[in-house]
């Protein structure tokens, strides 16, 4: 028996909206500790990793580990029927479920929707991601980072991110010209302006802006985002989801061959 009830169903809707341009189908692994999901984009350049802890759910029960193969497109269609204020419950009684039940309830419990989504069996190729001690970590407003990526992608497809003790510089070079945005440490009490740099080692890495713009669809999940980098490592972009878990995106760098 598996049942997970999320009080703020809108979080689940936002997660699916954040990943639907990146991955087509995913395996959600349910265990006693919660839900986890890992999937790569079709080009194997980016990877998304979701972890939702059982104690972030209103109700959570998972008698034995199960894998739920979902089409993101079909999941999206079902979730469109859930109101932003609804609770969302996922449920299945079977051990090898062929479908997953969804219940959407409004606050007054006066409207209850029930859907059943057919499951897919997906060969799960998951990658082992070691816990990395990143040498450059940037915490900043997710809206601000999203804006920087959008603005720079009109000049070039790739951005070079260079960190130093007191600032991070986003540089682009394209046919029309070049540009850079330098953001300094800023302990402002205004969320949108605050920038926290923890730079043990400066890095200079280049990434495709197309993927960063896709990752930034998660901006509605958290007002802050962290960029985690080490030389010759994929960038890890993390959106923490209050009291529930985190949505992480990994992006392989572009390097001069």
């Amino acid at each position: 028996m598996f049942e997970a009830k999320l009080q703020q169903g809108v979080i689940f809707k936002k997660i699916v909206d954040a990943i639907k341009d990146l991955v087509k189908s995913v395996n959600i692994d349910a265990s006693t500790s919660g839900l986890s999901m890992q999937a790569m984009d079709s080009a194997h350049v980016a990877l998304v990793s979701l972890k939702l802890n059982e104690n972030g759910f209103k109700d959570y029960r998972c008698d034995r580990p199960i894998t739920l193969g979902l089409s993101i497109e079909n999941l999206s269609k079902i979730l469109k029927c859930a109101g932003n204020d609804d609770t969302i419950t996922l449920q299945t009684d079977e051990e090898e479920p062929s479908s997953l039940k969804f219940f959407f309830e409004n606050q007054q419990a006066s409207k209850i929707s029930e859907f059943s989504l057919n499951l897919m069996s997906l060969d799960s190729e998951s990658l082992g991601i070691p816990d990395t001690d990143y040498s450059s970590v940037i915490q900043m407003s997710s809206a601000e980072f999203s804006r920087i990526c959008k603005e720079l992608s009109s000049i070039s497809e790739t951005v070079e991110i260079e960190t130093s003790k007191e600032s991070v510089k986003f540089s682009v070079q394209g046919d029309i010209g070049a540009g850079s945005i330098t953001v300094k440490n800023n302990q402002s009490d205004k969320d949108v302006d605050r920038v926290d740099l923890q730079i043990d080692q400066p890095v200079k890495l280049t990434f495709a802006l197309r993927y960063l713009n896709m990752f930034n669809k998660a901006v509605s999940l958290s007002s802050t985002v962290s960029l985690n980098m080490s030389e010759e490592n994929p960038l890890m972009v993390e959106y923490k989801i209050d009291d529930l878990g985190s949505l992480r995106f990994y992006l392989a760098p572009k390097i001069s061959d």
Binding site: H44, V45, L47, S126, L127, N233, A252
Partner: peptide, 14 residues
């Protein structure tokens, strides 16, 4: 121009 690496060249398949 820089070549795009694959994520799989950084992490082992489990």
């Amino acid at each position: 121009d820089k070549a795009q690496k694959e994520i799989k060249s950084y992490y082992e398949s489990e």
